[in-house]
């Protein structure tokens, strides 16, 4: 919610109330205030279709309010009548009468000349992986496999460090052009790509995935991704053509090490 807009609308209404406005001004003020709140009072803007719906309801409410009381009708009708009949309002009246059709014409014009919009599609960033993949004649079960070298972290820190060093080399030799030097998805080529390279710093990416999932994405890249979730035009290469299985597991270790994220554990199924 956009607090300032709402507060502003309320304060304006309160200030107005103190000055005891005529019914017409009061109703118009309410309409404007409600419009401001509905249209600009939300941090995420409310779609036009809903704004129209709400404003229609508010208009109906205001009309019902005015028409329920003789005095209010009088207060609303009098200025309108005066505007339409008195001589001193002749010019503004003429302007209004011209403005109304002009407004319609403008809204039609605006509607007709609007830029065409691409249809929206939803893309699944992390599609469901296949059961198992074959990398270098070796079958890896994505559902259950774990990084074969993850255990070294506890049992043999030295060997683990060596693997991390290898992972670092692999990353900066191959990945960083797109995924960036701090893994924020801002490599030098990143801006030419759509969809943009994944930022591993984002807690919504590798922190939510298991290492085998990363292994699958690295080994197989964009080609042959499952079709669900709309078209996919990622430029990620299938790294199995360039790297050994070991190197790919090492770079996965390095990704987690560098970003400080932990991989998601294999879920226990009973």
């Amino acid at each position: 919610m956009n607090t300032w807009v709402i507060l502003g609308a309320i304060v304006a209404l309160v200030l107005m109330r103190l000055r005891k406005p005529s019914m017409l001004t009061w109703a118009a003020a309410w309409w404007v205030a409600m419009f401001a709140i509905v249209r600009y009072g939300f941090t995420v803007p409310v779609p036009i279709s809903v704004v129209k719906l709400y404003m229609g309801l508010i208009t109906a409410g205001l009309v019902a309010y005015v028409l329920t009381d003789e005095e209010r009708i009088e207060q609303v009708c009098q200025p309108v009548l005066a505007f339409m009949t008195q001589k001193r309002f002749q010019l503004p009246l003429l302007a209004t009468m011209l403005a109304i059709p002009a407004l319609f014409a403008w809204s039609i014009y605006a509607g007709m000349t609007r830029d065409p919009q691409a249809p929206a599609f939803a893309r699944t960033v992390h599609p469901a992986p296949p059961d198992e993949i074959t990398v270098h004649d070796n079958t890896v079960s994505i559902g259950t496999a774990d990084n074969p070298y993850r255990a070294l972290e506890e049992t043999d820190p030295e060997a683990f460090g060596a693997r991390l060093a290898n992972g670092r080399e692999v990353y900066y030799a191959n990945c960083f052009y797109c995924h960036g030097d701090i893994m924020a998805g801002e490599g030098m080529y990143a801006h030419a790509l759509n969809p943009i390279p994944t930022s591993f710093q984002d807690p919504g990416t590798i922190a939510m995935l298991r290492e085998a999932f990363l292994f699958w994405r690295i080994a197989k890249g964009a080609p042959g991704l499952p079709e669900e979730g709309g078209p996919w035009a990622s430029a990620m290469p299938a790294w199995e053509s360039f790297l050994t299985e070991e190197e790919m597991w090492n770079v996965v270790l390095f990704l987690y090490e560098f970003t400080g994220h932990r991989p998601r554990a294999v879920e226990e199924h009973h």
């Binding site: 469901a128 992986p129 296949p130 059961d131």
Partner: peptide
């Protein structure tokens, strides 16, 4: 049904 093939097996 996302990932049903994997879940169906177990």
């Amino acid at each position: 049904l996302q990932g049903i093939a994997e879940r169906a097996a177990r």
